[in-house]
Amino acid sequence: MSITPYIVLSAILFTIGAVGVLTRRNAIVVFMCVEIMLNACNLGFVAFARQHGNLDGQIAAFFVMVVAAAEVVVGLAIIMTIFRSRRSASVDDASLLKY
């Protein structure tokens, strides 16, 4: 059983996640898209772990999950505070840091 389809799927999911980050404006949805991208990477890690018969890939996926969890916690807290002060969850509204 070749892992090529898994890799292709991983690439497709990653790309879809990236496009989602670029086009959606709701900060929460943007975060979901980031999660899709991370999961696509995880799929690649796990697939390659099987390809090489080495569990390090699974360990890497595990770490990605841990970091993703931490990131989501902090990120959502930030979204909360922004929403509290601006009554908006749009990433475009937080655009004061510019020229």
């Binding site: 990236a18 980050v21 670029l22 086009t23 404006r25 943007v30 990433v91 475009d92 937080a94 655009s95 004061l96 840091l97 510019k98 020229y99």
Partner: peptide
Amino acid sequence: RRIQNGYVRSYALSIV
């Protein structure tokens, strides 16, 4: 200067 428009998505586009 206009590249730095404050929109996160714009910056993300540059990264992509």
